[in-house]
Design a binder for these strands. Sequence first.
DNA 1: TGAATATATGAACATATATTCATTTAACCT
DNA 2: AGGTTAAATGAATATATGTTCATATATTCA
Lengths: 124, 124
Amino acid sequence: MGSAKAKCLDGDDCQVRVIHLDRVEQARRETVSAKEIERLSSIYKILGDPSRLKIVMALKNVEMCVCDLAAFLGLTESAVSHQLRRFRDLALVKSRRDGQVIYYSLDDEHVAELLNVGLEHVSE
Amino acid sequence: MGSAKAKCLDGDDCQVRVIHLDRVEQARRETVSAKEIERLSSIYKILGDPSRLKIVMALKNVEMCVCDLAAFLGLTESAVSHQLRRFRDLALVKSRRDGQVIYYSLDDEHVAELLNVGLEHVSE
DNA sequence: TGAATATATGAACATATATTCATTTAACCT
DNA sequence: AGGTTAAATGAATATATGTTCATATATTCA
């Protein structure tokens, strides 16, 4: 152990400096696929905005329509609708139509769990 | 129950349309503070980028220096350093200096838990 | 059918963000 | 001290993102 020697990576051109090749290789082995990283980061990302976080936290407890959410958040209905589309695209919320009103609710138990873990975080 | 009447919110000017006032009020009661929403969304946000997600997933298992991470990610050391600063600002990673090398590691068990829940999500 | 309501959508704009490049700080070694 | 390595930082730039406004779709009701 102790001090480490710099080594190179990536074959021929060898531009990259590495101090702990073993750790880099370990990280490479343990990493999940690029596709899973994309999916996972897009889920965190959609929660990474105060308005959207409030949306899912509300939908975790009760079904709501666009204008309810808009009132709750102090946002335009259009803005809320745009955000809800992103949730739908990721299949994180589902919608149910009753006449003119469309009710939104959470459609992913893992997201609810992510929220719970997050809430534990801030309540300490 | 059944169909609902639109009501108004926000006192005097009463611009906002609401269909289910009870649900909006319930959401208002159950929401966490603005400060906690800010903190929580900033944590999700920092995980909501593929490169940063890989960084924390790597650091979950092993201590790494900037140039190791850069090699692992295929990014510039400068880019990695910039991202690590954001993690430090949120107190999510800690660093330890050994000579010229600075070792980074996760500094928040909740974040590790968030990652575990996320990994369960994609592995199904 | 026609008016009204609830939501969705597209374009545009202003802000936020990630990376790059150049420079700086800090530690090591001779 | 001078040279080298590891990392941090600031400015600049290109891209991404959130909201607004105007318009479109879909449903209800008269």
